[in-house]
Amino acid sequence: MKAGVVVFPGSNCDHDCYHVLKHVIGAETVFLWHKDTDLQGVDLVVFPGGFSYGDYLRCGAIAKFSPIVSEVIKFAENGGHVLGICNGFQVLTESGLLPGALMRNRGLKFKCEYVNLRVDNSDTPYTNMYADGEVIRIPIAHADGNYYIDEEGMKELEENKQIVFRYCDENGTAEDDSNPNGSLGNIAGIINKKGNVLGMMPHPERCAEGVMETRDGYFLFESIAKFIGGCK
């Protein structure tokens, strides 16, 4: 697997994703500059977290006009794998690669903490090393992670098993008490219908090594690396 981490002005988890992909997973990894149009033959594109363009209009709203994003859209349409984390998820919804929108947290404040996630679909290229219903602990860090979609859209997500992660308690129950930001249906991460584009608010790259609080995020990267193949 060759991975590319997109760098927008204001991306700040770009080095973190690069570190995990390259040094922990052992994948060949490159940075993709927002003004470029060459994807350098990568198999996986990662939109990292951060504050692209300062998040000054709406999170992810300006990034979608970058030259690189037009290329990534084509790449995804042709079946290429795209992972958006936090601000990257916002870029994916803003650019139409994933349905719905991410709004201001219901508590209005930025929130950074470990949360419990239930894996609701382990049959994706990104989650095949988890089990359905497994509860994992991965940190969030965002002010705008409140997922919204209209009723019809929600029905479609449910029917197609597109909801991959939900916020839950330690027993896997996804209720309002365990919802950190007000997301509809406690949604923390979704995949597109085709199954190649995943967006999630939590940061798996922040817990992918033994020295961290948990190592639960490692398996997401390992899943996609195994799925694409050719690492280490």
């Binding site: 700040n12 973190d16 404040k109 930025f110 950074c112 860090a141 922040r206 090594e209 961290m212």
Partner: peptide, 10 residues
């Protein structure tokens, strides 16, 4: 500290 991103940069 919940309002601070205390984990970025891994």
């Amino acid at each position: 500290w919940n309002q601070y991103d205390h984990m970025v940069r891994v």
